[in-house]
């Protein structure tokens, strides 16, 4: 059973900014593996500190990063 899910729009934001996952990984100091987990929706939770770093690196708001489907 799959209900509504919180999705991380990392793919779209990276595409819009022409940035690779490896580059983002270097900027936010989070491993590519962990960013992939986040990108593919396998993470169970996200820290505020991670969200802050991602928003700073991508120049976006937390609301741009997360969507509720």
């Amino acid at each position: 059973m799959t209900g509504p899910v919180i999705r991380v729009r990392l793919d779209e934001l990276l595409k819009e900014r022409g940035m690779t996952l490896t580059e983002l990984s270097r900027r936010v100091e989070i491993t590519v593996v962990n960013l992939s987990i986040l990108k593919n929706g396998h993470a169970k939770a996200i820290r505020f500190s991670t969200l802050e770093r991602l928003c700073a690196a991508l120049g976006c708001q937390p609301g741009d990063l997360l969507t509720y489907d």
């Binding site: 989070i30 960013l35 987990i37 986040l38 993470a43 169970k44 939770a45 996200i46 820290r47 991670t50």
Partner: peptide, 8 residues
């Protein structure tokens, strides 16, 4: 532990 490990 699973919850903590799945927290990014």
């Amino acid at each position: 532990l699973e919850e903590v490990e799945a927290t990014i």
